[in-house]
Design a protein around this nucleic acid. Structure first.
Length: 260
DNA sequence: ATGGTTGCCTCGCAA
C-alpha cells in the first residue's frame, strides 16, 4: 500500500507532471494540497482514467485539498472539525480500514502576525482532533504541508533556525512536536534519523526564489504522520526530490510511504 | 539581503 502527500501548487498548472508521476509510481492513495480550484474545476477525468476515486475540498485561487484513492472513499469530512475556517485546508476520509487526511496548514507569513496566530490556532485544533482520532485505534495517516521544519536536520543550515523565522520558529516547531507527543510517528524521520548520513537534507520544499533548488537550500515541511497502528505497518518512506527539477515543477516534492 | 519567483478568472496577494 503506497500513500503519497504532495503540495502541487495548482493542479491545473501541474497536471502533466502529476499525471506522469502517478502513472510511473502508481500510489494507492494520493493526498494533494494547494489544488487552487473549486471542486467543479478539478480535472477529475484525468485521474479517473488512472483508476482513482476522488474526494475534494476545493477553493478558487488559494488553498484546496483532495484525496485520490484506488479503493472506495467513504465518510468524507471537509474542514478541520471544531474549527471555523473560510479556507479549504483539511479533508479526511475512510479508505478501506485506513483513515487518511490531507492537510494544508497555514503558512503564517511572518512570526507574530495575524496569520501566524491563525497558524498556531490551526495547530491547536489539529492536535485536539488527532488526540480524539487516536482513541479509535485505527490505522490513521495525516499527510500534508505542515509548513514547519521540525528539527535542525530539516533545514539547510543552523542559521535557518536562528531568530524568529517562519517555518522554523520555536513556537511553530513546538506546535508540530506536540502532535508527535500524542504518540504519532513522523514516517520519514523514523526511517532516516537526524544523525544518519541519509537523514541529512531530506527536503520536501525549495523556494522558487533565490536559486534555492540549485543550491539545495530546502526544508522538510511536508510530512506523513502515522497513528501507532499505521506505524506498526510502516515498510519504507521517501521523498522524490528529483521531481522538483522538472520544467514547471511545484515548489514541493512528493513524500511517500509504503505500508504492509 | 525585506531581494528573489510562481500562480492566480492577476495588475496585488499569498506563498
Amino acid at each position: 500500500m503506497k500513500i503519497v502527500t504532495w503540495n502541487v501548487n495548482s493542479i491545473k498548472a501541474r497536471l502533466p507532471i502529476v499525471i506522469n508521476w502517478l502513472r510511473e509510481n502508481a500510489p494507492d492513495i494520493v493526498l494533494l494540497q494547494e489544488i487552487k480550484c473549486e471542486n467543479s474545476a478539478f480535472p477529475s477525468e484525468f485521474f479517473e482514467d488512472l483508476g482513482y476515486n476522488i474526494a475534494l475540498h476545493g477553493q478558487k485561487t488559494y488553498h484546496g485539498v483532495a484525496i485520490l484513492s484506488k479503493l472506495p472513499i467513504e465518510d468524507v469530512v471537509r474542514g478541520l472539525p471544531d474549527f471555523e475556517d473560510t479556507q479549504s485546508r483539511y479533508i479526511e476520509a475512510l479508505v478501506g480500514s485506513m483513515r487518511v487526511s490531507s492537510i494544508y496548514v497555514p503558512n503564517g507569513q511572518e512570526v507574530g502576525s495575524d496569520k501566524f496566530h491563525y497558524k498556531l490556532s490551526f495547530y491547536k485544533k489539529l492536535k485536539a482532533h488527532m488526540k480524539k482520532s487516536l482513541e479509535a485505534k485505527e490505522i490513521a495517516i495525516w499527510g500534508g504541508d505542515y509548513n514547519v521544519a521540525p528539527f535542525l536536520a530539516d533545514g539547510p543550515n543552523e542559521e535557518a533556525f536562528k531568530g524568529e523565522r517562519i517555518l522554523t520558529s520555536q513556537k511553530e516547531r513546538e506546535a508540530f512536536r506536540e502532535l508527535l507527543w500524542l504518540g504519532i510517528t513522523d514516517a520519514i524521520r523514523v526511517q532516516y534519523s537526524e544523525e544518519s548520513l541519509q537523514g541529512q537534507h531530506l527536503f520536501s520544499w525549495w523556494d522558487y526564489r533565490a536559486n534555492s533548488w540549485a543550491q539545495n537550500k530546502g526544508f522538510r515541511i511536508d510530512h506523513l504522520l502515522l497513528s501507532p497502528q499505521a506505524a506498526d505497518r510502516l515498510e519504507s518512506a521517501g521523498i522524490n526530490s528529483e521531481v522538483r527539477a522538472l520544467e514547471k515543477a511545484s515548489d514541493h516534492a512528493p513524500v511517500w510511504i509504503k505500508l504492509r
